[in-house]
Design a protein around this nucleic acid. Structure first.
Lengths: 117, 117
DNA sequence: CATCACGCTATCTTTTTCATAGCAATAATC
DNA sequence: GATTATTGCTATGAAAAAGATAGCGTGATG
C-alpha cells in the first residue's frame, strides 16, 4: 500500500513536524511529480496522454502521483483531463525558470567534460 | 548497485534523449536532493551535520545523493564540509522562493480542511 | 452488438530507500 | 604515545517505492 501524500503539518521526509517547505520537497521529490507539473503546463492532458509524454512512467505510479498532486491542491481532474489548479499555476511559475537554467547547466556540463579530456 | 547520476544528454527518467530539464528533474526528484541543497544554503555542513539535519536520512542514501550532486556540479566537498558550488547557489536562487510559497500553500491547506468540516 | 479509447487496478519484478552496525582515518585528549 | 572521539563512509538486510505488463469496467461510437 502506498503512503499518503505529504502535507504541511503532518510528519514528512525531513521534518517530523511537517514544516511546509519539507512537505513540499517531499511531494516534489517523488518520482514524476515535477515532470507531471511540467507537462500539464502545456495544457490539460488525459491520463493516457500523460502516460505517453512521461515515457516510462507506469500507470500505478502515475495514478498515485496524480492522486497526491490532487490531494495537495496542485492539479485537478476536469472534463478535458488533468490540469493545473490556481495553486498549481503559482507553483509552476516558480518552476518555469528551471527550464532556462537547465540549459546553462547542461552547457557547463559539456564545458566540464571537455576540460577533463 | 545504485544508478548513475542523471546528466543532461544521457537518458533519464522522462526523456530518452536527456533533455536538460528532465535530467534536472530526475536529479531533484530523488529523495533528499532538494532537502540537501536547502540545508547547505545555510552554510557548509559536514556529513554528520547533514545527517542530523535531514532527520531520517540513512548514510547510504545521503552519501549517494552527495555523490550525485557533486557529479552534477551543484555541491563540493571542501575543508569546512559540503557546500554549494556557484552552480549550486544559482540553483538555490531559483529554489529559494519555494520557501515563502510553501507557507501560502500550507495556509490554503488549513483553509481547505476547514471548508470540509 | 462489436469496437474502441479511457481511467485505472492487479500482479509481479526490480530498484530505491531505510535502519542499524561498525570500520578506517584523522584529530584531540590524557 | 596510547586512548578516546569524531568524521566520513561501507556493509548488510529489511521495507517501501517504482517499473513492467496484462487486463477490467465504463462510456462513447459505429
Amino acid at each position: 500500500m502506498p503512503s499518503s501524500p505529504p502535507q504541511p503539518g503532518l510528519p514528512v521526509r525531513g521534518s517530523r513536524s511537517g514544516k511546509p517547505i519539507m512537505a513540499l520537497f517531499d511531494l516534489l521529490g517523488r518520482s514524476w511529480s515535477l515532470g507531471i507539473l511540467w507537462q500539464l503546463s502545456e495544457g490539460p492532458l488525459t491520463f493516457r496522454e500523460l502516460q505517453s509524454r512521461c515515457e516510462s512512467v507506469s500507470p500505478t505510479v502515475l495514478n498515485q502521483r496524480l492522486k497526491e498532486l490532487r490531494a495537495c491542491l496542485l492539479i485537478d481532474h476536469r472534463q478535458r483531463g488533468y490540469e493545473l489548479t490556481d495553486m498549481g499555476w503559482e507553483l509552476f511559475g516558480l518552476l518555469e525558470p528551471f527550464g532556462q537554467w537547465s540549459f546553462n547547466w547542461a552547457d557547463r556540463f559539456k564545458q566540464d567534460s571537455r576540460d577533463n579530456e
